[in-house]
């Protein structure tokens, strides 16, 4: 395997930060402690943390999870201990790793986001991923991500206050995602990640109740992959900034598909729930794919796409 790896250059650069490979962990599906029981976290291109807010958020009541055909709904509601606890307890742990750190930032008001990015000013982290797309919180969140005007405004204000490059995480629950991508690029976003989950719902016809306490939730998993690939493809043709692509990536070939569509890096989410070691397996499969088609770099995969 070592020989094989030597031949391929898996490095990718996002906003001036070079990752050893394009594999990252999708926010909300990764815990350094728990995921670290299953694989060597240093193998990742970057870790993307769970959403961190200005204060502790309790999250939604249960049930928070419902399986659907080829996918799942979640309505966790961004449960997290808040930025101070994150900096005190989780960040030191992440900083010991030999990989890049991307902190996902969540908020209900603009001030929530500002507090978090300002508190991260002095911290040794590589990038910020700004979640303006969570469908599971009542106010804020997705509200900022569904109008180009609001997305532009929050990007501009966060950009002023953040020391690290910012990646805006976009929602697919809009009429035209390219409008949002263009708006955040215009206000200085250093990259975009897409897609967050698709708003969905499941009713248990036996109990005759919604499957989730929150009634609606975010759909993820292979069921949404074609939607995600289409959106990455459209956004790639609308903006010049880097894209982290995600949405139902289960295999190395899926990762290659996102790269051809225009992604610079990819995130692995739901796959890690059914295969805790999925990020590393997918990385190996991507290397095998590159070997098979004689691609020597991630850029060669992207350029190899024949878009007639």
């Amino acid at each position: 395997m070592l020989e094989l790896r030597d031949k391929q250059d898996l490095r990718v650069t996002i906003a001036g930060i070079t990752f050893s490979n394009p594999i990252t962990t999708a926010s909300g599906t990764f815990s350094a402690k728990e995921s670290g029981y299953f694989y060597d976290l240093n193998e990742l291109g970057a870790v993307i943390t769970k959403g961190v807010s200005s204060h502790a958020w309790e999250g939604n009541k249960t049930p928070r999870i419902a399986e659907t055909y080829g996918g799942m709904l979640n309505a966790v509601g961004l449960q997290n201990p808040g930025i101070d606890d994150f900096i005190a307890n989780e960040l030191p742990w992440l900083q010991k790793l030999d990989t890049k750190i991307i902190v996902n930032v969540a908020g209900k008001t603009p001030e929530d986001y500002y507090t978090v990015v300002e508190k991260l000013w002095h911290e040794k982290i590589d990038l910020l991923e700004i979640n303006i797309s969570c469908p599971n919180i009542k106010c804020g969140g997705i509200g900022f991500g569904t109008s180009p005007k609001m997305a532009a405004e929050i990007t501009k204000e966060i950009k002023k206050r953040a020391r690290q490059p910012i990646i805006m995480k976009l929602t697919p629950n809009v009429t035209d995602i390219t409008e949002i991508a263009k708006a955040v690029e215009a206000e200085g976003a250093d990259g975009v990640s897409l897609i967050n989950t698709l708003l969905g719902m499941k009713i248990d016809v036996h109990t005759r109740k919604p499957a989730l306490f929150n009634k609606t939730g975010g759909l993820s998993g292979p069921a949404i992959k074609p939607v995600a690939v289409r959106m990455v493809y459209q956004v790639r043709r609308s903006v010049g900034i880097p894209i982290i692509g995600l949405g139902g990536i289960m295999t190395g070939e899926d990762a290659a598909e996102f790269i051809m569509a225009g992604a610079d890096a990819v995130s692995i989410g739901t796959a890690a729930l059914l295969d805790p070691g999925a990020p590393i397996r997918i990385k190996k499969e991507l290397i095998a794919y590159m070997e098979r088609y004689h691609f020597n770099s991630i850029k060669e995969i992207r350029d190899g796409f024949i878009d007639l």
């Binding site: 599906t29 728990e34 995921s35 769970k50 999870i65 979640n74 966790v76 729930l273 805790p276």
Partner: peptide
């Protein structure tokens, strides 16, 4: 969800 502590489901 995951059954191992990662997802907070």
């Amino acid at each position: 969800g995951c059954g191992y502590g990662a997802c907070l489901g």
